[in-house]
Design a protein around this nucleic acid. Structure first.
Lengths: 196, 196
DNA sequence: AGCGATGATGTCAGCATCTGTCATCGAGGC
DNA sequence: GCCTCGATGACAGATGCTGACATCATCGCT
């Protein structure tokens, strides 16, 4: 006889995603989510800082995974290449980006795109990641503004690649899409070297 | 004898910025802002969709300015170069980025950086700009993912340049900073063409 | 066994954000 | 002089979020 069901946080996340998907973000109250898993609104706020965060709490590990991947690329000297390698490492290694997780990511993305406040939070998480990667590069001796440019470019590539990965009908792996985007960005910036 | 003071929206924006700067975002209620200019909370929400928007309503014109600048670059064929020209045009032409507006931009940036919710809104505005520019490029015949990459790269460059422009001690013009960042990005992506 | 500390949860009060609805009333047209 | 219009005020209410305190199984210690 247990007093509380375990994994309260995970149950809340699951219930929240389902309710947001079926009913909409605005039409789902925090009390709805909490009661769906037998808890109260107050407890929800003990696990998540606000209503939106229930969809983003996993991003903390995500950010750490990126920093770890970056740390593994000690040998690389060119910052853009370094970021590219870290990106490639994460997308082919990190659980959430495997093929079996794609349907879940698609549902989650659908929910996020359906509400502005959720998009804002997602953008902030990406921004936070870029800042952290920029700091990591700087600690390695990469100067500004190159460190920020490399980090921001990498995160942009990841974001666009991820968006494409979860797009309807897309079948390529995240790594493959990233690789293609990387090449396209290089090709684009390589043209007209002498213009203004 | 006028019944209402004119320019209610502008007065609200001014009062909001001052209160956010002196007291903090959370410590300023919407009622505070409204009463400071002789209006009520309800009227505030008739001008601005939410409390944060009072700092961002001008961004509508800002986005239009970018699209206009993009439209003026009909002759250019390389998308990255096109975006670069539009950027340069805006930063040297648009009022808010002239030298005399720098102190105001600095204050505004300080306020935004002091609160996460305001950063989220700013990131959304930048994201919205990138989407609009990507769509404009696509209408010109630029294919995906190049259109999105060019638009996102441009907005990233603008954002990093703007951040630098309002940094303490910075004296270069926004155009000059942009030009430098543009060159740095080209140099960075140009290296190690044969890697991976 | 008994007992106290621990920690997850519940309860309750309260403030702030944001919205719908109706009332008010000067300005300008006729 | 009357009437419509439009900006504003007044009011009620739902929801987001927080602080403070109570509850009560479980765990470890004696």
């Amino acid at each position: 006889m247990v007093r509380w069901q375990p994994a309260a946080s995970e149950r809340l996340q699951k219930a929240a995603l389902e309710l947001f998907a079926s009913r909409g973000f605005d039409e789902t109250t925090v009390a709805d989510i909490a009661l769906a898993v037998g808890l109260t609104e107050r407890t929800f706020y003990r696990y998540f800082a606000d209503k939106r965060e229930v969809l983003f709490s996993a991003q903390g590990e995500f950010e750490q995974m990126f920093l770890d991947a970056l740390a593994k690329t000690r040998g690389s000297t060119d910052p853009f290449d370094t970021v590219g390698r870290a990106l490639s490492d994460v997308s082919s290694t990190f659980g959430p980006f495997t093929e079996e997780r794609r349907p879940y990511s698609r549902l989650r993305q659908t929910v996020i795109l359906a509400h502005q406040e959720l998009q804002e939070r997602e953008l902030l998480k990406m921004h936070s990641l870029a800042r952290a990667m920029g700091a990591a590069l700087r600690e390695r001796g990469v100067a500004e503004p190159t460190a920020s440019l490399a980090a921001e470019s990498g995160v942009m590539l990841f974001r666009l690649s991820f968006e494409r990965w979860v797009a309807p009908g897309e079948e390529r792996s995240l790594s493959a899409i990233e690789h293609d985007m990387f090449a396209k960005l290089r090709a684009m910036t390589a043209m007209l070297q002498e213009s203004s």
